[in-house]
């Protein structure tokens, strides 16, 4: 019980929009720290986040947030902070007024509101903007204001949906670091389709696809799963089209007349859909480290998988349709 009171337990959750099933038997336990929810657009991430934030009702299964059943929406709202994907505030209000208004709606006493607002504005580096109107803030500042409002009532769970989309690299890094800091003493669920954000911040992740949970575990387990399936080869540009047809290409770098291609290979046995990639021979003959495998692109050598490779491999492994790099 003690363990359940510190984590989110999602068991066999289903959710429909009309006849379309948006969540399919999702089973997940989320513990303290940063948790990444990864998936394509339309995978069901936002639906799951909104269900956790009490904005949607599930149709099947059970969810408890720190020991409180999700059906006790009022109690759950008292311990969650939510930063929606399209965060917005009344444009004519000042930064301070916005936070004060939302704090009042969270039923915080006035003195506590004042103290927390000052502290959070300092933390998100918006102290100097507290008298500025929301409409005058930049995109990055608005996101920081968003995280401040979500943390205002010191929630035990923070739910952030695609928070870095549209931010410049500097703001993105700054925002990720901020999330990591606040995750020290609470559950932070980060939903994104940007693999780099997950890799940089989360230890535990889940991958959703078409409402179904494809993977749950640590980032290192995901990387381990893709070990031996990622290759790098330098090929002439003329072979690039053929390579894209035959392999799942996860990266390429042109240099003069040659191109360095990063691709997945040797995964057919694990792919229930059995999508053919031209690495059958490699799977049969094993890997030829450094020299290029028979059946692989000439000069192909095994590479250490990164998070993007591992994510793509996971999708491929579960039979997901992957748009190739064909031009």
């Amino acid at each position: 019980m003690k363990q359940q009171s510190n984590c989110i337990v999602i068991s066999h959750v289903d959710k429909y929009y009309g006849k379309k099933q948006a969540l399919r038997d999702v089973d997940l336990t989320i513990e303290r720290g940063m948790f990444g929810l990864l998936g394509r657009n339309g995978a069901g991430k936002t639906t799951l986040m909104k269900t956790l934030a009490t904005l949607h009702e599930k149709q099947g299964g059970e969810i408890s947030v720190c020991g409180i059943p999700i059906s006790h929406a009022s109690e759950v709202r008292g311990i969650i902070g939510y930063l929606p994907q399209d965060f917005s505030m009344y444009p004519n209000m000042t930064v301070y007024e916005c936070l004060d208004y939302l704090g009042t709606l969270s039923q915080m006493p006035r003195a506590q509101r004042q103290k927390r607002i000052e502290m959070l504005l300092k933390r998100v580096n918006l102290s100097e903007k507290k008298r500025s109107r929301v409409r005058s803030l930049s995109g990055g500042m608005k996101r920081r204001l968003g995280i401040a409002q979500a943390l205002l009532h010191d929630p035990r769970v923070l739910i952030v949906d695609e928070p870095t989309a549209g931010l410049d690299p500097e703001e993105r890094i700054r925002f990720r670091n901020l999330l990591c800091e606040v995750a020290e003493d609470r559950i932070v669920i980060l939903s994104t389709h940007i693999v780099g954000d997950i890799e940089a911040t989360c230890e535990n992740i889940a991958i959703l696809n078409e409402g179904e949970l494809l993977w749950k575990g640590t980032v290192s387990q995901l990387l381990e799963n893709a070990r031996g399936k990622v290759y790098v080869a330098e090929i002439p540009v003329s072979m690039l089209a053929q390579a894209k047809r035959d392999y799942i290409v996860t990266g390429m770098l042109r240099s003069g007349g040659a191109v360095t291609v990063r691709f997945l290979a040797g995964a057919e046995d694990n792919n229930p859909a059995g999508r053919p990639v031209g690495a059958t021979a490699a799977a049969e003959s094993g890997r030829e480290s450094g020299q290029g495998a028979r059946g692989l692109l000439p000069g192909a050598r095994e590479a250490m998988p990164n998070c993007e490779d591992a994510y793509m491999y996971c999708l491929y492994q579960h039979g997901c349709e992957i748009a190739g790099g064909e031009e």
Partner: peptide, 22 residues
């Protein structure tokens, strides 16, 4: 209409205050 126009509904919905109070 202010909440819809400012797209702030989700922020308010997830606050502790009841619908009766708001």
């Amino acid at each position: 209409q202010q909440d819809k126009r400012a797209r702030i509904q989700a922020l308010i919905y997830t606050r502790k205050s009841s619908g009766v109070r708001i």
